[in-house]
């Protein structure tokens, strides 16, 4: 890696950090602006004004908003996410196990869907216009058009209710063997894969086809190269940038966007935790969850950009 590439990568990281600060400010501001006073919600409608004022002072809610923001922001960096209003536990303790669950689900889905999606996308591009290509296109469009709750509930109906092959609910902590794990994760993973694969397949196919239309691929064809050599040696290395970006965008969905899937399968992940936090007005928890989603998203997008920069041959 030369100096120029290093410079570009560092610049990208700095941009990611700046974005993070802006995002955290936005998250904080948005939760502060939410209607309703936290203290009044906590104490209920019968609260005396003295009690409200006392609790306010105890919770430092009378401090200027910017000061509270700075404190909260500093807390994030030191691992102190605050105390949950609803059950008085540190937010970190609440989120920790849930995050682990979510990452497990996301990880398994990634390992399962990315290779399949890329292979389908690349092979569809290789045999563009063939029956195989058309089938893949129709199926991926079909799958992306069916809403995920439909996929999820149909899966539950077929595999859990009629066939009784799989449990309808996924309790991630009851796993003791590999077979059990398969049974527990099968339905949520398949549902999520359906949702995220379609975009990856279509973007990969488009990126590969675009490079297949370049003069240098035609040149390789006129050198006598086979179809697989054209795609794997000439087209694919030049299509990495757009492909990783499509993958990153799809994967970013796996942490924040899986609310419906987690709810339907009653899977104890972060998204479900956030939904619960919203219904109890648990501001620190909401803020932390929102920040978490933003950080994962930023991480994925930044990684994709850096891979695109490093893989660009013109920067070598």
């Amino acid at each position: 890696m030369n100096k120029h590439v290093l410079h570009l990568v560092l610049a990208r990281l700095v941009i990611a950090l700046i974005t993070l600060v802006i995002v955290s400010f936005t998250v904080f501001a948005a939760t502060v602006l939410l209607p309703g006073d936290v203290v009044e919600i906590l104490l209920g409608q019968a609260a005396t004004p003295e009690a409200v004022a006392g609790l306010r002072a105890a919770m430092h809610l009378d401090d200027p908003a910017i000061w509270r923001f700075l404190q909260w922001f500093a807390g994030i960096f030191t691992g102190d996410f605050g105390i949950s209003y609803a059950n008085n536990m540190p937010v970190a303790d609440l989120i920790g196990p849930r995050l682990l669950n979510s990452l497990k689900l996301a990880g398994i889905t990634t390992v399962f869907s990315v290779p399949i999606a890329l292979t389908l996308g690349i092979t569809a591009a290789m045999w563009r216009g063939s029956w195989f290509d058309r089938t893949v296109t129709v199926l991926s469009i079909g799958v992306v058009s069916v809403p995920e709750f439909m996929v999820a509930t149909s899966a539950v109906l077929v595999f859990a209710v009629y066939l009784k092959w799989l449990p309808a609910l996924s309790f991630a902590n009851e796993i003791h063997s590999f077979g059990q794990m398969l049974r527990v994760y099968a339905m949520p993973v398949i549902t999520l894969s359906f949702v995220i694969s379609a975009q990856m397949i279509r973007m990969t196919r488009a990126a590969v086809i675009e490079t297949l239309n370049t003069p240098y691929v035609e040149m390789a064809l006129l050198k006598g190269a086979s179809r697989s050599r054209l795609v794997l040696k000439h087209a694919l290395p030049n299509a990495i940038g757009p492909i990783v970006n499509a993958v990153a965008l799809s994967l970013s969905y796996l942490l924040g966007g899986v609310i419906i899937v987690e709810t339907i399968f009653n899977y104890p992940g972060v998204a479900k935790l956030m939904v619960d936090a919203v219904s109890t007005r648990d501001l620190p928890l909401i803020q932390t969850c929102a920040m978490l989603f933003c950080i994962v998203y930023l991480f994925l997008i930044t990684t994709a950009d850096i891979i695109a920069i490093v893989s660009n041959p013109r920067l070598k």
Binding site: P215, Y216, M219, P237, N238, P313
Partner: peptide, 10 residues
Amino acid sequence: SAAAAFNPAQ
């Protein structure tokens, strides 16, 4: 156009 006919990645 040789410039376009050479693969930039190799």
